[in-house]
Nucleic acid binder design. Structure first.
Lengths: 352, 352
DNA sequence: TGGCACTGGTGAAACGCTTCAGCAACGTGG
DNA sequence: CCACGTTGCTGAAGCGTTTCACCAGTGCCA
């Protein structure tokens, strides 16, 4: 394999200096180059298939035109970071937006002993998009690098970071209120293990808000935890029934979990929404592909991705601090049933 | 923001030369460094949070430790490259394997006028994984760069490229034969538009093989085309019924399409598998999340991703040419119904 | 003709790192 | 005491770019 052609080769072949070649090819408008020379250089570069190397450019401008994305590892498996379709849609939007702006995307899942701030420095990333929540020490490290960071779906109160999110608390409130408005009073809350700064915590707060507003007491027995994955919530179904709390509805904080739960319940003879109503969160495409179609809190995942990408690029290019909150709303489908007044007293029949 | 610490800073602080510092930190065993000096240098580097820059290393070794992945844009949308859950699972496996080997992953979707060989050269990618099929000119360009390429799910007959695939033709054969063995003789074939070198073409060949073996003539009217997406196949449902070919079964060449079709049929009152049987391909997680659960041709997508990653890394490090064919098999679920002999004569009742 | 501005171009330094070649000091065997 | 190998370390070149500073030539005006 022969050596790759460098700017020197183009210069020699075109009969001009490296400096001139560089000026022509990098298209600086203030450089004084005659039209003829420019033509020759461009032609020569074309002919030799010259492609400038980013590594050399990076050394000089301290800009790599590379954006990093960090995606959380959900659950226990070490590399099923895409088990939730949410990530695919998000990533797709980020990649597209980044690319349209002349950047490229470097992705990394999260491992136990991965040092992301090192990766960021090693690769001289211009900016980073971080999805989900992480230990504060990690974010502190990121801060010291001085690289712009956009936090998505994380509630970290630090002026340094840009953020993109939805009002998860309000979403949780809306979901729960929707169930209440449909006559439910015993409402299970199913989510990932609650962590500070996480979206699930916020959605839980919203759940509490709606309960409180309706004068319904919080019953800790109605709180369930599982991984954000289909299988994990599927396996949760028997436990919910076994506990015998008589819930007539459940607010599940991710559609993928809602679907797992619905099918898990179905597998043990409990029907949604006949026996129990379920509302999800996210409105991933999956929510309409199954039966019953899932009533859920809609958020625009693609918009979330493209917004995060836009912000990080703006920040790289000197833009101001930004915090964007995207809208959200309930979309009514078939997984929630209206409870008639006379049913209220009875509670969930299968638990009687 | 202060200047980033470089190897010079470490050297000065540790009171040794840059050369010595480099030898210590890059851990060359043949370098002759006293234990004491090594200790001091390491300590200093740690204390200053020194992280070597890849761009500088890349210039010297001509190795970027960067692997690229190219994912096809499915359908007409410009950035829904993850509309098929297949990609997420594949990418996840690739990313994990790559990372475990000290590489990082650069991803790029496909755009209309994207020049990937330029990206590859610009970023000095060590290797590339290409998913799906592309115009030959594109592959030729990749070849001229001399960068190792692993083709996944593409039937290109060129010794230069490594490949990872399954026996799609055999898979198509098995799927079709399964339908035939269950008593079906009028069998629709639903796939993406057939292209040379593509997996769908191979699956079609398998479909033909099985038909021929069973003495069933190929009926062009039973061939349907749509995008590899849920929505596109959903919308195909009315057309299949409208054509009135009396198919009692369909072989759909991707699960996501199979699901779209099933639900599309359902929406117009046609039940799977009661009215029509459907077999899919891929066995994505989705296939078991819906009702009926989809009978399909299983392939190990995660394995496909990790294998592609392993091969590309091996190739980068001087490994031999490799062509891997992964196993596949039918997994029986609920979307195919056994047709009883007396039903054969009648054909599909709804079309009568 | 001298002074000056403008045009079109070049040389060389710099970015951060690796690595070759070489140097001084110190045994060690003859 | 010389020759030679070994140990521990360093100087400087070089990777492919960009960019600052400078230079030669030309035209123009006073």
């Amino acid at each position: 394999m022969r050596k790759r052609v460098s700017i020197k080769d183009v210069a020699r072949e075109a009969g001009v200096s490296v400096t001139t070649t560089s000026y022509v090819l990098s298209g600086k408008k203030d450089a004084r180059i005659s039209a003829e020379t420019a033509r020759i250089v461009k032609e020569t570069a074309e002919r030799l298939h010259y492609v400038p190397r980013m590594s050399a450019r990076t050394m000089i401008n301290q800009k790599s035109k590379l954006i990093g994305v960090i995606i959380p590892q959900t659950g226990s498996s070490s590399h099923l970071m895409f088990s939730n379709p949410f990530y695919g849609e998000f990533l797709s939007a980020v990649e597209y937006t980044i690319r349209q702006n002349g950047y490229h995307l470097l992705i990394s899942g999260t491992g136990p002993n991965q040092d992301y701030s090192s990766i960021a420095q090693m690769r001289e990333l211009d900016g980073i998009i971080i999805l989900g929540t992480y230990p504060c020490s990690f974010l502190d490290e990121m801060k010291t690098t001085g690289i712009p960071v956009v936090l998505v779906d994380a509630y970290v109160d630090d002026h340094y970071f840009h953020t993109v999110s939805i009002n998860d608390r309000h979403g949780g409130y809306l979901a729960t209120k929707y169930l209440i408005d449909n006559g439910h009073t015993r409402i299970a809350f199913v989510s990932e293990a609650l962590r500070d700064y996480g979206v699930h915590m916020q959605r839980f707060r919203g759940y509490q808000d709606a309960l409180k507003e309706a004068g319904i007491g919080l019953d800790e027995k109605c709180l369930y935890t599982c991984d954000v994955s289909y299988d994990s919530s599927y396996e949760l179904a028997p436990e919910i029934i076994a506990r015998g709390n008589g819930e007539t509805a459940a607010f599940v904080t991710a559609d993928i979990m809602a679907l797992g739960l619905i099918n898990g319940l179905k597998s043990i003879g409990v029907s949604v929404p006949d026996d129990i109503s379920i509302i999800g969160f996210d409105d991933v495409p999956l929510a309409t592909m199954c039966l019953p179609q899932i009533t859920t809190v809609h958020q625009d995942i693609t918009k979330k991705g493209s917004t995060a990408a836009e912000i990080v690029i703006e920040a790289v290019e000197g833009g101001p601090k930004r915090d964007v909150i995207l809208p959200l709303y309930i979309v009514e489908r078939d997984s929630v049933r209206r409870l008639e007044p006379q049913e209220l007293a009875k509670g969930l029949s299968i638990c009687s």
